[in-house]
Design a protein around this nucleic acid. Structure first.
Lengths: 128, 128
DNA sequence: CTATGTGCAAAGGGTTTGCAAGTAG
DNA sequence: CTACTTGCAAACCCTTTGCACATAG
């Protein structure tokens, strides 16, 4: 894997972000520093970095994919009002729960829960 | 909600299926009985039926959406060899696990686990 | 020098939508 | 009669890809 400026910038942008950015978020942000970078390059580098286990991809139904740094394992919740992602750590490993119940080997999983985040719960005007 | 032949057929096809069909599977199948039905109509009816809680939509990362009847609540696993979907029932409700850990209200979730199904585990030739 | 990566623009795949005509109730 | 639904085709959105050029090592 060659170390190009583009790849470096894409990686750092996700690594330093707290907001679970999408490919386009990353594109916009990296473009500030390297105006000629193309969206295709961002996608390609995200793919490489995810395949190498240096970043995580989070598939959110009905939204473009989000990306996250490789911190301690956790799951994600998406606020159905504001669309932001939040982290959550389950007490019992989901793959273990699934393997035990199904008897099959679990090789990965994708989980996104819908929630109302504290901000939206607080600011929402009355609704029936 | 009007009761049209198209909507009826779409509903019945999913209701009688054991295979977690995609919109296109449903389209192909319904077309056998009603050759002029359009794919757009299938999508529209699936949307209506899911919104009314008569069918479930299963979002599988990297695949088109699948649909399922509204049987007892369960989760899904997708075999990474053959791509088929399988049902699994967790012992502890995931929304409860998530709510407890996050303190937020959980309004739904999407979970798909990757697995190796028994068929593929048995038939696979040796691989490193 | 050679493998790998890039920018660009076009294509891809699943899904949604605008519209005029058709149908349910 | 009126609101809802359909078929059709075009549009949409996110993502991938082919290609010729550029760059890392």
């Amino acid at each position: 894997m060659n170390r190009t400026k583009q790849r470096q910038l894409v990686y750092e942008m996700v690594q330093n972000s707290f907001s679970h950015p999408t490919a386009d978020d990353i594109f916009q942000s990296v473009r500030a520093e390297m105006p000629n970078i193309s969206l295709g390059t961002v996608y390609r580098n995200l793919g490489v970095l995810v395949d190498m286990g240096m970043l995580r991809k989070i598939a959110v139904p009905g939204q473009p994919d989000h990306f996250d740094r490789m911190s301690e394992w956790h799951d994600h919740m998406v606020c159905e009002k504001c669309g932001r992602l939040f982290d959550v750590k389950l007490e019992h490993s989901l793959p273990e729960q699934l393997a035990e119940r199904s008897g099959m080997q679990i090789t990965g999983y994708s989980l996104v829960a819908n929630c109302i985040c504290p901000d939206c719960a607080a600011h929402t005007t009355f609704q029936m």
